Computed example of a mutant assay.
Amino acid sequence: MPRNKVCIAQGGRVLEGWQMTALVALVGYLLGSIPFGIILTRLAGAGDLRAIGSGNIGATNVLRTGRKGLAAATLLLDAAKGALAVWVGAQILPGEGAAIAGLFAFIGHCFPVWLRFKGGKGVATMLGVALALSWIVGLIFAAVWLGGLALFRISSVSGMSAATSAPLAALATGRPDLAAALGIMALIVLWRHRPNIARLLKGEEPRVGSSRHA
């Protein structure tokens, strides 16, 4: 069988390489686009998360409902869907499938079709993807995130710092094959934090625990 074709069905159906890549990307996107923050807050009777605080669907905004357990669950599930996408991608398309699925899971979280492409900022999902792609890179990501949060008490600063550290960590640990996907994610994280950057420059960015928007 040619190298650019893969058989995935018992009936012998063969998909071209680009079709397999598209399939992996679609599966990753659909997994990443599951809005756990909205689902959990609605199930808990906390209302529509998009009408609370910043309107963001991530764990930081869930924390503004006063439900720390829900915020923790959102963070874990958002990370888990990124990790799951990497695993599924690797099963469908060994080799590059893991990074492709992880990247598109991240994109799905940030731009979910179900929410008119208005999703989260992607930090937790990127953590899950990084851990699944390389546990060393993932641990560096987590250490920078937690360290920045402890030092500055500003969620946006810790999140952006962690995201930026991931492609650098991939290069430093001998995984240049992951640097491109992680670099794209880091750029999107920075882009999604544009309002936060503007507030940081003005000295108006809220600290963790504040009721102001983030």
Rank of each mutant, 00 (worst) to 15 (best):
G120N: 03
A46P: 01
I100A: 11
G69K: 07
L93N: 08
L49Y: 02
G122V: 12
G28L: 00
F36M: 14
C110A: 15
S54P: 06
G102A: 08
V86D: 04
W87S: 13
G89E: 02
L63T: 08
I39N: 10
A25M: 11
I100H: 07
R64I: 09
G66E: 14
M126R: 11
G53C: 12
I34T: 15
R116W: 07
L31R: 08
T60Y: 00
V62T: 14
A85T: 07
T60S: 14
V24S: 09
R42D: 05
G55F: 00
G58V: 04
A79L: 10
V24N: 10
N61F: 05
L131W: 04
W87R: 15
G66N: 14
V88G: 00
V27P: 02
W114F: 09
M126V: 09
L31C: 11
R42F: 01
A132D: 00
V113M: 14
K121C: 02
V88T: 01
A25P: 05
G69A: 10
L127M: 14
R42G: 04
L63E: 11
L30T: 09
E96Q: 15
L84A: 15
G120E: 00
R50P: 01
L30R: 04
K68W: 08
W114Y: 11
T41L: 09
N56H: 04
N56C: 01
R67L: 15
L84P: 06
A85K: 10
I38M: 13
K118M: 13
L76S: 14
G95F: 06
G55E: 01
M126E: 15
T60K: 05
F111N: 04
Q91D: 03
D78E: 12
A99K: 04
R42Y: 01
A101D: 01
G95W: 05
F104V: 03
Q91N: 10
L77I: 06
V27I: 15
N61C: 12
A130K: 05
T21S: 12
F104H: 03
L30S: 05
F111C: 02
A90I: 02
T60C: 07
